[in-house]
Nucleic acid binder design. Sequence first.
RNA 1: GCGCUCGUAGCUCAGCUGGAUAGAGCAUCAGGCUUCGAACCUGAGGGCCGGGGGUUCGAAUCCCUCCGAGCGCGCCA
Length: 568
Amino acid sequence: MKQALEQALSTALEKLLADHPGTQAPQVILNRPKQKEHGDYAANVAMPLARVLKQSPQQIAARILEIVQWPEAVEGAEIAGPGFINIRLQQASEAVALKTIIKAGEQYGRASRSGESEKINLEFVSANPTGPMHVGHGRGAVVGDALANVLSAVGHDVQREYYINDAGAQIGVLANSVWLRMRELEGESISFPESAYPGDYIVDIARDILAGHDYQKLLTMDAHAREKLIGQLSIDANMAMIRADLNAIGIGFDVYFSEQGLHSSGSVTELIERLQADGVVYTGALPPPKGKEVSDYTPVEQLLFRTTDFGDDVDRPLAKQDGTATYFAADIAYHFDKHQRGFDRMIDIWGADHGGYVARVQAAMKALIQADAQPDVILVQMVNLTRDGKPVKMSKRAGTFVTLREVVDEVGSDAVRFNFMTRRVESQLDFDLEASKKQNDENPVYYVQYAHARIAAILRKAAEEGIAIAKADDVDVSVLTSHEEQRLISHLLTYPDMLKKAASQLEAYRVATYVMRLAADFHSFYHKHKVVTEDAGLTQARIVLIRAVAQVISNALSILGVSAPERM
RNA sequence: GCGCUCGUAGCUCAGCUGGAUAGAGCAUCAGGCUUCGAACCUGAGGGCCGGGGGUUCGAAUCCCUCCGAGCGCGCCA
């Protein structure tokens, strides 16, 4: 319907502008007015034309209305306010679309692959394999997974990828921490250094390794080889834990990509050579950092990438003083690798604390590819964990660190996932453990699920009453004329557009706000109107309506990774 | 000091590629269950959209500036 109206207006505009050669017809975008008096759809096309045509928007709108050939369902259109064209549709003319929703089922709102489909690589979470994930990682995970669902839903081919930072100094720290705990478990008295990882999970890993390996042999083996072995075993253990924790909120990946692999395969060295050949690398010393007190600053000659030529603030080191590659060097190699794998587009979801990193990666890719190959980076702001409104103090060292797994175990996957999706990623998020456990107004996830369960209950009731649910095609839905019914119908019809917008803007939270509003509309309808009544025709029509509502709620929740229960 | 993000009702947030009277939940107050699930609904009060300037027919939305908060700023990842 919307498309038909836009088409009609576009055609009218073309005719109108035939008298004005050279003027570009503005794109017709219809929206749903907030107020019922403003009709079912509104167009503002006349207003931007006012300046070009040197006529008042009202005059132009009047001309358009003279020319336009509306589709049959249009009852009337009038000019209002500063020049809006408000379109009224015939009573209940949109209700027939309910049948399409029911027929499409889980597919409603989804688009299949088309010429516009892109092959997208979406990298998210990528938590270091040195310990458990915290709630901030959880937010990134939930946002990333939902975004992947949104992008797939509109027809893109999405690969979910996890970059494992299994290289660098932190792995040495991890190996050392585990080794110290192993020795402690074997009876040695160890003073645990501050630089080591303190968590209990380190002890667990140590115990597991001892169970599978001969301690005496480990003691006597070459220290370097031992560190490598224990490091790898510890990474594997942590990754298994991370994967299990992600699984607990229903998240999995298509690809786990190892940073270590980039080093061992020579990709990092090759990349640095490539950059050297391009002449964007030099040896030099960086100026001291600004605004941060560095007492022992000593300039160091190192291999620098001239990222300032590509939009960065300062040049960035590719190699450390000892000659080994920096994390940055590996990360460029990683992004280059993704590009070589043939993706049309890559999206990275990072925590806000990595914000300072965006410019250099994009600069690097610009230097390397000389095309539009920069990743879209989505920065997810912090999560402030509270309990009854009071901040939960977290300190890794004091052992009061709250992990994502603990939160999920306490409040449940659905509540965690939905609450993480109710805000834009740019906004910091307060997550209250107690409020998220409450099954009441403070917790939107149950509000939405309740609407779904309520519809299931009505359908059960109808079945008890012996009402056979008619095929949607055989039902006359034109009787759904009340305000509440019309509202629900028009809201249901915007679902595909909402999804498209969420995809194009990379804003999956729109699905959550959408489904909350839909649930609200349903609850209002429920209180005003009975579905199962004496009037058999009306009953069938309303059953079609609520089935469509349940379907869309279920589809939306599925994208968010939240269950749509029949009973609660 | 510089960069990124944010600032909207008492609280938490939508609305931001400019459009009509700025919305929702919580909290407060007043109502609603003999009737399909009250984990719900209806109504009321509550706003210099952080301050100021600009762009224009029109600004919460765009630009500049100031204030405030978070994050980041050498050879960690």
